[in-house]
Amino acid sequence: MQVPAPFEYERATSVDHALALLERHGPEARLIAGGHSLLPMMKLRLARPEMLIDINDLSDLDYIKLDRGEIAIGAMARHAAILDSPLLAEHYRIFREAEKVIADPIVRNRGTIGGSFCQADPSEDLSAVGSALRAKMVIRSSSGTRTVAAREFHDGPYQTMVGPSEILVEIRVPIRPGSGSAYEKVERRAGDWAIAAAGTFVQLSGDNVADCGIGITAVGADHFACAAAEDFLIGKPATVENFAAAAQICHDAVAPQSDQRGPADYKRHLARELTSRALNRSAARARGEDV
């Protein structure tokens, strides 16, 4: 029987209340949202917080909305809500495609986008999506809010820029007219973590790539991204050949490790293949094709 070590529990009634509790209890306090990453780690005693602050009642952080030309997603938005969001489906298909392969429908009822980012698992899917879309992470403390780029949010595996007395409250994604996006993942079985996965957006200006973003997960990509491949593509024609060349840059840039999910060379192969597929589908969607 797996049981966490003893801890104290308190329910936060507002973001300010949660911040006050974090300040009062110090670095040994942890926020709990869906709990589907934290509780398993606590059962294995890989995490031993002395205090759990339950933020499930903070429904004011549970939203997906348009806000000043950007999509704003509250940190407590559940995976199930992101999967079903018409707003995200309209602007960024990448979210729906990533969510469909995150865990299973029951787990998606509980897990949150904020929890996924803050868990910072090196195989996390939404971290790749955030990096691909160059999302902005809004972090709140008692002294105000600050914004960190998704590509600067992670500070290594399971480490983020969110301080001990701070809360990630919102994820913001700019709307990019004339763009398309897609997510490609290979997993061992339904609902598992990725062996490798890639998410991209492509924004077209005529036949050329005006802007693009490439997010990759589970293969040791720096900040879940591949900036060199993006730099290569921007300004070039959106062709299968150029996407293949960009995917090759990703293949060479990632640093996967051999483990029970597969050997490193296979993961490298996947990084190239999945990036290529995602780029081609993103571009097709940017052209208005139904793929």
Partner: peptide, 22 residues
């Protein structure tokens, strides 16, 4: 570990895995 689903119950009408909720 919230994989197998045998502990599924409904909370406020939604299924959740009761091994992974306090």
């Amino acid at each position: 570990t919230s994989n197998c689903g045998v502990c599924t119950v409904q909370i406020d009408g939604q299924p959740v895995k009761s091994c992974t909720i306090l």
